[in-house]
Design a protein around this nucleic acid. Structure first.
Lengths: 230, 230
DNA sequence: CGGCTTATTGACATACGTCAACTATTGTGG
DNA sequence: CCACAATAGTTGACGTATGTCAATAAGCCG
């Protein structure tokens, strides 16, 4: 395994504390792929033969209804592990996975190999528990958002979740096209547009682009009572 | 540890394959509590000092908005582990936990002790990974439900998730009061009532009681295209 | 540059929430 | 064990946030 790959893996929370030997055995028969945007990695309902770790770029998890309507469950980026739950349980995927960015680089680990390592490698099992715990909380936040907040509040708190400081001003980049962000937030693109309009008077600017500027983070936090718990 | 407790723990998927010695050390300094309904085990925002496993009865995870509106994120019952993600990460709880049934019996494990065991006990880490993977999929289903289905479809697929066969007829018991079930499904009690009214012509009966009868499971599955993935 | 997709904006529709009245159920104290 | 209060559920009338449809504008790509 190259030093560069090793460093990349360790920069992600999930692999921060795993042993060298484990990293070695995990990546031993893994392959690295560089994929163009719109590549479909999995389709909802398939059994996952591989576990993926994102080295660079972004992907999106898309859920489908019976009538083939789409929704976005979550975006994932460099440092994230995905489809782990389906691989661990060897069950059909609940979502499709699509590449967002061109030149997205992913590490592809054989599912069976991963399940075997999970049974013998203490540090891997611990790392996976923590990663799943983080993801669990992410989803719980989304559920609370969907049930307890209106469109403008959902947009505001989503934006706040993308920035790392809690006052001042920033320019951030949305993780995908606005229609996908709208789907992630459980609304139509039209509603997202109107929500941004409502947030304009709170200092949120940006239109027709993935760039969004927040003039006063503290004011926006006040608006949606963002405390990291709701 | 009593034989009875041991058998109880092993009947739950999460502890099915853990070693005797682990079960022993996990329950060594754990306490068993029998609690009356409406007991609040945790409040949103608190740090969890204990991990809980349900031996009998039911609890509900309740999320609060900034204006103290409530919503139900999930019900848990005998055999379920809860607040594991917050305990693993040592972070504030995203939800409050309230007891639903009288005489609910729970096993209370010290949080620090659990985190220590998670670092050394391979079988525990694996069991927890699997449990979290199951829970992750549960939440993903809920998110897809909220975004892709209307009220009647959500009720129908929720009911189908509570039964274990896929045709014929059954009588099932809702996991809590209708207002809580409504909150779990992201709707008001009034909307739940009306959704049941709409499902009446599909053979779903039951009113003013936690008992619900489904005359034709297959017909209901057809209505909401329930395939376990959506 | 021209076709194609995405985002915005406006007019309108509707599913669901809100409010209120009524009914059923549950719990409690005499 | 009954009476009655308190709580939960249902039903109807009505309001509204958000979806839908359509037209326009703005990016994007060959």
């Amino acid at each position: 395994m190259s030093d560069k790959l090793s460093r990349l893996l360790r920069s992600a929370p999930v692999f921060r504390e795993v042993s060298d030997s484990l990293l070695e055995s995990l990546t031993g028969d893994a392959t690295i792929q560089t994929l163009p945007k719109n590549t479909v990695l999995f389709r909802q309902g398939e059994i996952a033969d591989f576990l993926y770790f994102i080295l660079a770029g972004r992907v999106v998890l898309i859920g489908y209804s019976d009538t083939d309507e789409e929704t976005v469950v979550e975006f994932f980026q460099a440092g994230d592990l995905f489809v782990a739950p389906a691989v661990i349980l060897d069950l059909p995927l609940l979502m499709s996975v699509k590449v967002i960015d061109d030149e997205t680089r992913i590490l592809r680990v054989n599912a069976t190999r991963f399940r075997e390592l999970l049974q013998t490698e203490q540090t891997l099992a611990l790392a996976v528990s923590r990663e799943l715990a983080r993801h669990w909380r992410m989803l719980v936040r989304q559920i609370k958002d969907l049930k307890l907040r209106n469109t403008a509040q959902r947009v505001a708190s989503y934006l706040l979740g993308l920035v790392d400081c809690d006052s001042g001003s920033v320019t951030l980049t949305l993780p995908g096209e606005r229609r996908m962000v709208a789907a992630r937030l459980g609304m139509t693109p039209e509603s997202l547009s109107r929500a941004f309009l409502r947030l304009r008077e709170l200092g949120v600017s940006g239109s027709q682009s993935p760039e969004v500027e927040i003039a006063d983070i503290a004011a926006l936090r006040e608006f949606c009572r963002y405390d990291g718990l709701i």
